[in-house]
């Protein structure tokens, strides 16, 4: 396969279970069984070079777990993740991890409060030994700070001297300092005010164009996603229910859950368009419904939805897991 067409990152039927059992002694005394929570359930997707793939969904849908599985903060329970065609679990694949970085949600928690900004930004350079001398490290840090819209002198300060938006810029500078190709961004703007969010989204778009970066962008905010993403994956209770081009997904959503999410967004234009009222809540992930996980809230559910788990169905560029779509009921 041509190198440029090969996806940079591929997830193949990846699942992740968490042990949420009571402590061992309690289990023995109370006779309670081990309890597993499946946070990510058979997710397959591919991120192409230079694109932004967004994952959206409500809290507990597993999107942040996917981010942490990719950068190696969690190990997969099942399935495989490939980066540039190589299995990340293979021996020696840790070198591949240097080519990816992560930006976190909370700019107040993602910078070590006791470190100076220059040391925070320089840590990846030093740990990955990307500079020959301390002088080179300093020059690189100054360049990175300028690149994200700060000044070199800001390196001398501590994180608490900056506002939330500036801190997120520092996080971005740090993530870029290891020269990654691939950035996993976990809700990078959801802790920020809207005017600052716009600054950070614009900065991320500029950096992507300038440095040819590939983004996996995790967010619960569909409007933000529609602004930054080329393709969008929608997750529900650990499963990927729809994956499509952003333009397509926001205009012609296929999965009933995607439709419901789009209808739930407050209408800023006050156009007064008719919307289906949203019903129900996300079920307990410890005890997910049988069949399609969305069926208790779905207007189109039938007997098959309640018993048989829908498989991913390719519709042109889009992938959707829904019996109603397959049967052309909607």
């Amino acid at each position: 396969m041509d190198r440029d067409n090969r996806p940079l990152l591929r997830m193949l039927e990846v699942s992740r279970d968490f042990d949420v059992s009571r402590p061992w002694l309690n289990r023995v005394l109370e006779g309670a069984p081990r309890q597993l929570l499946r946070a990510v359930d058979g997710v397959s997707l591919a991120v192409k070079r230079g694109e932004t793939l967004a994952l959206v969904g409500e809290s507990g849908c597993g999107k942040s777990t996917v981010a942490r599985l990719i950068v190696g903060l969690y190990a997969t329970s099942q399935g495989r993740i490939e980066f540039d065609g190589i299995d990340l679990a293979a021996p020696g694949a840790s070198a591949l991890r240097r080519r990816m970085q992560m930006i976190f949600q909370d700019p107040y928690a993602s910078l070590n409060p006791r470190w100076r900004v220059r040391d925070i930004v320089a840590e990846p350079i030093r740990v990955l030994k990307l500079a020959a001398s301390e002088h080179e490290v300093g020059a690189r840090v100054a360049e990175l700070l300028r690149q994200v819209g700060l000044v070199a002198e800001d390196g001398e300060k501590y994180p608490h001297e900056f506002s939330g938006g500036q801190r997120q810029r520092i996080s971005i500078a740090r993530a870029l300092s290891g020269n990654p190709e691939f950035l996993v961004c976990d809700e990078p703007t959801s802790a920020l005010d809207v005017s600052v969010q716009a600054q950070i989204l614009n900065l991320m778009t500029d950096l992507q164009q300038r440095l040819g970066l590939t983004y996996l962008f995790i967010s619960h905010n569909l409007a933000v996603v529609s602004h930054i993403a080329d393709r969008v994956g929608v997750m529900y209770l650990g499963r990927l229910v729809e994956l499509a081009d952003a333009e397509e997904l926001f205009v012609r959503p296929l999965h009933p859950y995607t439709r419901m999410l789009l209808d739930a967004i407050p209408d800023l234009e006050m156009s007064g368009k008719a919307r289906t009222p949203v019903a129900g809540e996300v079920p307990n992930p410890l005890d997910p419904p049988a069949g399609c996980a969305f069926h208790p809230r779905c207007l189109h559910a039938n007997a098959r939805c309640r018993s048989e788990r829908p498989q991913a169905l390719v519709r042109g560029e889009a992938v959707v897991a829904c019996h109603a779509v397959e049967e052309r009921r909607i």
Partner: peptide, 13 residues
């Protein structure tokens, strides 16, 4: 569990 520790783990410390 704070994110700066996770950030350090991501670069393989």
């Amino acid at each position: 569990n704070r994110e700066y520790v996770q950030a350090a783990r991501v670069i393989g410390r």
